[in-house]
Design a binder for these strands. Sequence first.
DNA 1: ATGAATGCAAAAACTTTGCATGACG
DNA 2: CGTCATGCAAAGTTTTTGCATTCAT
Lengths: 136, 136
Amino acid sequence: MTLNNQDLRKAGLKVTLPRVKILQILENSEQRHLSAEDVYKALLDAGEDVGLATVYRVLTQFESAGLVERHNFDGGHSVFELDRGDHHDHMVCVETGKVIEFHNEQIEALQDIIAEEHGYEITGHNLVLYVKPKGS
Amino acid sequence: MTLNNQDLRKAGLKVTLPRVKILQILENSEQRHLSAEDVYKALLDAGEDVGLATVYRVLTQFESAGLVERHNFDGGHSVFELDRGDHHDHMVCVETGKVIEFHNEQIEALQDIIAEEHGYEITGHNLVLYVKPKGS
DNA sequence: ATGAATGCAAAAACTTTGCATGACG
DNA sequence: CGTCATGCAAAGTTTTTGCATTCAT
C-alpha cells in the first residue's frame, strides 16, 4: 500500500509540498513510528523549509483522513504511523524506546469473547506492552 | 487493601498532610482514575491548601513507591490509579462511556509469551477495548 | 481569483524544577 | 535540630492557534 497525491485529493486535502513531503517521510522512514519532532527533523535534513506547526497540522489531518494512526505511548509525546491497513499492536522497550509491532490472533479472539460475555461487541482496541530486554 | 501511614513510612516517605490527604482522595474517590488536576481540585474542595506542584511530586513519588499506577490514556495527560493489587484492564462503551474492568489470564499469559519470543520481559501494559452494546 | 495552506510567533496545556520557608521525626 | 517536604513562581515540553502571507486549483 503506497499512498500518493491521489490519496490526498480523496481526503479533500490540497496537494501541497509539505503534505507530499511528510507522506514521503512516513513511507520511507526506517522507523515506522515517528514523533512530530522526528518528522520535522527529517524535513529539515531533506532541506525542506516546513514549520513544526505545519507538521502537527498535517499529521492531525492525515489522522482524520485515516492515512495515519496516532499513538500515545508512555513518554508524553505522540507518535504517528502510516496506516498501511495491517492491524497490529505494539511493544515498546522502556529502555531504548524501540517499538516492535506484533499481531496475535488468539488475543484478538479472546477480546471478542470477553466483549461478547459482557453483551458488547468490539469497535476498536488499544494494546501496548511495555517491555525491557530479558534480564537487565 | 487499604493503604495508610505505615505504607508511606515503608516507602521512605515522611507522613505529611499532603501525602495523607492525597492517599485518602485516591482511596475514596468514585472515579478510580484521576488526573493530577482532579486530585488538586479534590484537595481544594476538601479545604486543603496544597499546591499543584506538590500533587505532581507526591503522585510521582507514590508511583515510584508502587502505591499508584500512572496511565497515559489518550488525551495528553496522565491519570493515576491506586494500586490495589488487583490488576485489570478496561472496556469502554463508546456509546454510554461506561467503563468495565476485566481480567483475563489467557491474555496476560499470551502477552508474556509474545514478549518472551522477542527477547523481552513485560514491565507493564495497557489494554483498552472500545465496545458498543451488541446490535445497536 | 478565492479559499485553503503555510510559517512564524504567541499561547495553551501539562509537568517539572529552583529556591526560600516550614514541617516531620 | 537536621533534613526532608512544601508552596510559589518560573521554566520546560509538547501541541495548538491567530494572523498575515503564499499557494493550489
